[in-house]
Simulated assay, not measured.
Amino acid sequence: MSKSTHGRRTLDLLGEAIVSRRYAIGAPMPSEPLLCEEFGVSRTVVREAVKSLVAKGLIVTGPKVGTHVLPDDQWNWFDPDVITWQARAGLTPEFLRDLQDLRRAVEPAAVRLAAERATAEDIEEIEAAFAGMKHAVEFGGDYVTFDLRFHHGLLRAAQNRMLAQMSKALHALLRTSFEISTVKKDGPAMSLPMHRAVLDAVIAHNPAKAERAIIKLIDGAREDIEEVLGSRRRLPRLGRPPPRLKAA
């Protein structure tokens, strides 16, 4: 295993341990020698991982005070690693509701911009994603991946670098939402016309209509997630491949 692979693995293991509360907030983390022994890596690898965790807002370190886990409101929730670690550790109701609020605030504005700015190439990409969703509904297959591709395509079509980066933070929510929809009877089939309405409004360069269409889609997804949270059913775990639809 290469040095870079050791470093990545160590960072992921430490990050997941923090996010899953194996290391309690405010509590000191194990000493450097103990971490080296636990993960079977050098001090250099551990120190680099600690630097990354400090940069992501998960821990603070200093002379004489040691290394401590920070409260989660100080974590960088726009960092894709932090989102991934939380997804692997388990999506909590609080985490999902925060992401739903973020999606409701961001995606309608992004779709308005997409309706104003989308290029022919952007529309071709979103059309291809919609075609993949439709094919999965009609003939079976991976619906979730194409649904993700559809929404990421909309964010990219806004032609705003910050919104494009935000899609990484939204990824966990979007995938969870789409997986929940796939287990509901006729969920994907019922959502297809709503996706088509968004796409048609973007093609027509009608920002107001596009915004209304995406809000309808988002609010439906919120209801699906709240229903699952209320039922206390287990949420999807994102470390596994997305479920596949059966042929209609």
Score class of each variant (00 low, 15 high):
Val41Tyr: 06
Thr67Ala: 12
Leu53Gly: 00
Arg43His: 09
Pro33Val: 08
Val50Met: 12
Arg43Ile: 12
His68Tyr: 12
Lys56Ser: 11
Val19Thr: 04
Val45Arg: 02
Arg43Trp: 07
Pro71Gly: 05
Ser52Ile: 02
Thr61Ser: 15
Val19Met: 06
Ala24Ser: 10
Met29Val: 08
Ser42Gln: 01
Leu70Asp: 08
Glu38Ala: 13
Gly57Pro: 04
Leu35Asp: 05
Val65Gly: 00
Val50Cys: 05
Pro71Leu: 10
Val69Arg: 04
Ile59Tyr: 04
Thr61Arg: 15
Ala27His: 08
Val54Ser: 06
Val45Asp: 01
Ser31Asn: 02
Gly66Tyr: 05
Glu32Val: 07
Lys56Ile: 02
Met29Pro: 02
Lys51Val: 13
Arg43Met: 05
Glu48Leu: 13
Leu35Phe: 06
Pro28Trp: 07
Arg47His: 12
Gly66Cys: 04
Cys36His: 06
Pro33Asn: 11
Pro63Lys: 15
Ile18Met: 09
Glu38Phe: 07
Leu34Ser: 13
Val69Gly: 07
Val60Ala: 13
Lys51Gln: 12
Ser52Thr: 11
Ala55Ser: 11
Met29Ala: 11
Tyr23His: 11
Val41Gly: 03
Ser42Leu: 01
His68Ile: 11
Val60Cys: 12
Lys51Gly: 08
Met29Thr: 09
Arg43Thr: 07
Val65Leu: 04
Ser31Glu: 13
Lys56Phe: 11
Pro63His: 14
Ile59Met: 01
Ser42Pro: 00
Glu37Val: 09
Val45Ala: 01
Thr61Glu: 15
Ala24Asn: 04
Val54Ile: 14
Glu32Arg: 09
His68Phe: 10
Glu48Val: 09
Val45Pro: 00
Glu37Asp: 14
Phe39Asn: 04
His68Ala: 13
Pro30Trp: 06
Glu32Ile: 13
Leu35Glu: 02
Glu48Met: 07
Pro63Asn: 14
Leu53Met: 10
Ala49Gln: 03
Gly40Thr: 07
Lys64Pro: 00
Glu48Arg: 15
Pro30Phe: 08
Ala49Asp: 03
Arg22Trp: 01
Gly66Phe: 02
Glu38Asn: 06
Val45Asn: 03
Glu32Met: 07
Ser52His: 15
Val41Met: 05
